[in-house]
């Protein structure tokens, strides 16, 4: 997939665990894991907004386009 999710990097920069983030943004750990692993087919604006708010970052910090 040409869109890479850099959630792991941002999480480690913020010293935050996946479990904590999942609790803050109100999704299950399983769904967060799907997002982190790049298996997700789409991301809702509301989820992206919650992640950006929780991690105090921009969408571009989380999502990266890589040309195939």
């Amino acid at each position: 997939m040409s869109i890479k999710v850099n959630l792991d990097i941002v999480l480690s920069e913020r010293n935050m665990k996946s479990k904590e983030l999942a609790e803050i943004i109100g999704i299950t750990e399983a769904n967060l894991s799907i997002l982190k692993s790049g298996k997700a087919k789409a991301i809702r604006f509301s989820t992206l907004e919650a992640i950006c708010k929780a991690l105090d970052c921009q969408p571009s910090d989380i999502l990266e386009y890589i040309e195939d």
Binding site: I27, N31, L32, L35, K39, A40, K41, A42, R44
Partner: peptide, 8 residues
Amino acid sequence: EEDNELTI
């Protein structure tokens, strides 16, 4: 349905 389930 699968797409919907994989929309986070």
